[in-house]
Design a protein around this nucleic acid. Structure first.
Lengths: 194, 194, 194, 194
DNA sequence: GATGAATGAGGCTTCATTCAT
DNA sequence: TATGAATGAAGCCTCATTCAT
């Protein structure tokens, strides 16, 4: 029982990863169940053994991606370092996510256009959870005088917006390595909060 | 002849504006020719008198929007004011665009997903033209010592990314007026370049 | 305008008649849009120009059939003849309907399995309207002493049930002509109400 | 061998009863192998160990139900009572069948729509067998002067038709108990044959 | 015997596109 | 110019059926 359940879960994840890839290339509407299945050498009918429908599949893509991101930020937040250090690490983490898992990351951007409320709410909640780790660090930083800003939420959105845009231009094997990008963004974005 | 051509042009623009509206509400795939036509009290068949196909129509939407943006930036660039002033004005202009013409603006973000090369190239070119006005101001500012940064291109992308993200959260009739948003962003984004 | 509307209506009726035929042969679930269209040398896509979806098409089939039947009964009811005469005529009318328009008639039998409440209610209402013409004649007949029964509703259902069953065995070009069937049923069914 | 065969038979019957239930609720096309299996806490794959395919399973449902009905009528026919008494008992039996085993009964009505000739013929034969018990009683009744009719077959069909229709309106827990319905139908239907 | 998994055919529906009028 | 009508490709989804384990 345990074994077969694990197998099931594994297969589901495989499908999700395939879906994430296609959705990123073509967008939600552009991605077809056929193509998602073909990527795994399955037939589209099989997908419905694992997921209720397309919306459900895409929903689970979001959940997977967001949960990963949230866990990572949580770890950073709980370390015993300055808020400036934490924010820098979060920025690095977010950038790495946005670049390395570009495909998955893109999905988080506009869930409203894709989901109905039953599935939209959990996603928005997770999104908030993700953002709130940034908020908490910034807030703490302001409290202890490390950061000097008034508009907490908007600053957070400036940071995230700036970083999310990286996907638009970053090319792996391009002239900048990911570590360089992280460093440059850390430098300029920290100027915003100080 | 001249007259009828003008009429044609006018009708085309009407259709483009309608298309822009629908495309933003529903996305490229979600927008249907039917709906675009209905907005103008036409039937979808008629659209094909003015545009070769859907892709062509959407392409012309891009052109219209980008040309407007470019013209505005050009005017700002040619004024006799400091580069700091210019950059602030460009930021305000871009934000207003992103909020008020949210519909049209979204389309510019990922043209690769929508167009094939014949139409993609002109769009990418105009996008570059648009960005380059920001680049020039920043470059000039650095030259005369108003700005103190090394990574010109990346800074420009940080600015644009931060601003483009506004669409994700800004709600008209929300708690912030557009002028407030412009002011706040001016304040924090100028910290990046200094 | 008037002309084109009439054409539209005519086409709709053509489609309905085709649908009625197929549905009768195969049942609601068994009837496919493809087949309904093929019967008219159309493609299934075209059907959606005239009807919102399959349920809508089938719904309109019901409406058409029921309205015809109701109109006929109404005319009979308003004639200046005895209730016995009226009931006989109604029986003859119902039988002719059940035989000649066998296909259409069958659809009325189990609408609950096919429709959701939005469309089910109008149908049930029309069905009641149809039945009520029988009820009224029987009631009047009882009042004036022509008929001698207590269970009005059940008697009506005995009559309708007996007649609806004709479809199960009647074969055109069989040994009985429709007029003979009408006569025989009149004879035996009138024994029920006396 | 004998034991395992009995087990097999028992399991088959269980499945048939489950199928009968689902088919009545959803109709032939609406009933899915999945649902039939779920009712028995099995998986649909297992059904194919007991039945060749869906048509076969449904076929056996018919056989089971018809055999029951036939046996009951046979017993009535062989009792030492008047033909009037016999017919009344058959009416009561048929009505109880139509109401209590509504599920199964419905399936008998239109076998032509469901089966192909290999399975259709046995079913039609059993149906005839069932009807013939009615015919025999009526015939005997006419011979000995209890009944006074000419059109034997049609009268039988009037009776069966009237009774089969009960399913359309009878509601368990409604205002009439099954015994009342039986009594009322006995009363009015006997008027037909006298 | 039973099942988890996969398949593929077929059904409903949407929509860009075409074309005669 | 405009439109009503039709088309066909493509997408989502269901489900009977199969089969290795």
């Amino acid at each position: 029982m345990k074994l077969s359940e694990k197998k099931l879960q594994k297969k589901k994840e495989e499908i999700i990863l395939s879906a994430v890839k296609i959705v990123n290339e073509k967008g939600y509407q552009g991605a077809t169940m056929e193509e998602i299945a073909a990527e795994l050498l399955m037939t589209k009918g099989s997908l419905y053994y694992y997921f209720k429908n397309k919306e459900d599949l895409i929903f689970q893509c979001h959940v997977l991606v967001l949960d990963q991101g949230i866990k990572e930020l949580e770890v950073i937040f709980n370390r015993e370092i300055s808020n400036e250090q934490k924010l820098k690490l979060m920025i690095a983490s977010h950038i790495r996510f946005a670049i390395e898992k570009k495909e998955t990351f893109n999905m988080i951007i506009k869930p409203e256009k894709t989901f109905h409320s039953e599935q939209l709410n959990p996603i928005l909640q997770k999104r908030n959870e993700y953002s709130s780790w940034f908020d908490q660090v910034i807030e703490e930083g302001v409290k202890v005088g490390e950061f000097k800003i008034k508009e907490l939420k908007i600053v957070r959105m400036i940071l995230l917006g700036a970083m999310n845009w990286i996907q638009q231009w970053y090319k792996p094997n391009g002239e900048k390595k990911i570590e360089e990008v992280q460093e440059i963004y850390e430098e300029y974005l920290m100027k915003v909060v100080k």
